[in-house]
Design a protein around this nucleic acid. Structure first.
Lengths: 180, 180
DNA sequence: ATATTTACCGACCGAACGGCCGGTAATCAA
DNA sequence: TTGATTACCGGCCGTTCGGTCGGTAAATAT
């Protein structure tokens, strides 16, 4: 049911999706939906949590690695792409939330925490050397995460396709487009 | 009035913004708003057009340049950042529409046209040399534009700040983060 | 066989929304 | 000064929405 709701949220937007739509897509009535959940916002909350939990798990795994900071950064970027691909619809919901309710604001706050983790990693990588130090680390983190998050706009999950995208993205981010 | 509406659209989302909200922010009543415009959707239409017109103007200007394709690509990326900064709130509205109405679908279609322009430019740049040919041009275009468009999520317009962001972005995109 | 829990439904409610209409006051052209 | 145009308003309408409630039928436990 969460999956059905999230699919509709992404098709038409959260506000534009009615509880009737969700019920209809499950072949039951609106009243029956309320037998299983407490309200529309709970569905949103569960979806956002599923996405955020994946991202923080990735951050925890990478933090534990005993490799130089630039490589930890690259690993985290790559893992973020894979999480986004695995939990595609949940991450898409998360990235569209604007903070209209308390639950949404809490999700935004957790997103900012993740941004901070990446920013700190960029900072370390610049200090250790291996990542260009001439751009503000917060800007680097936002631009790279922006590129990752933009996948929700056009990437469509297929088995195995995520690694190819992760390769392309990390190549652009770390090596750049320019040859010679 | 368009400016006031667009500001609210971005604060709370298009659906979550009522005509009463727009009227209130202007110090007039809802009825008075309808004296000036035909409906809510017209406001959205005008905002999206303002953003798209800016992007296509940039594309036209760059197309007329007599420089190698890789440099035209870099110029277009940079100009896109500047358009996004100039028409920030309008572009933000544009990038959030999901195609729920006919007008939104038309805007999405124009966005795809712009994507195609960038993709073709990447293709030329790869053929001429100077841009790495080992990544699918459509993927390159989407990732770079994704990085540009992600600015709507955190960049806040200040006079002069756009060039610094454009520099950082094009440096990452063309030279990459890695040193040595 | 009976009691209890689970899944479901139809009917309804109050609120909010986009939009419309008839009318009034200010502005402006002649 | 008069006539027309423009800007504005209060009040209303039909619809849709999230959510509730009382009740039924099936599943499950004892």
């Amino acid at each position: 049911m969460l999956a059905a709701a999230v699919r509709l949220f992404n098709e038409r937007g959260y506000d534009a999706t009615s509880m009737f739509d969700i019920a209809e897509s499950l072949g039951i009535t609106k009243s029956s939906v309320y037998h299983h959940i407490s309200g529309k916002e709970q569905l949103l909350q569960m979806a956002m949590d599923r996405a955020l939990d994946g991202l923080f798990e990735a951050a925890d795994e990478v933090r534990a690695l005993d490799v130089p900071a630039p490589e930890r950064l690259e690993r985290l970027v790559r893992r973020s792409v894979l999480v986004l691909a695995e939990r595609f619809e949940y991450v898409t919901v998360l990235l569209r939330v604007r903070g209209n309710t308390e639950a949404e604001q809490h999700a935004l706050s957790r997103r900012r925490d993740f941004d901070t983790i990446v920013t700190d990693l960029v900072k370390q990588a610049q200090a250790e050397g291996g990542v260009r130090p001439d751009i503000d680390p917060a800007t680097v983190a936002r631009l790279i995460l922006g590129m990752v998050n933009s996948l929700t706009e056009w990437y469509r999950p297929r088995t195995g396709g995520a690694e190819a995208i992760a390769d392309a993205l990390t190549r652009i981010a770390f090596e750049g487009l320019r040859t010679e």
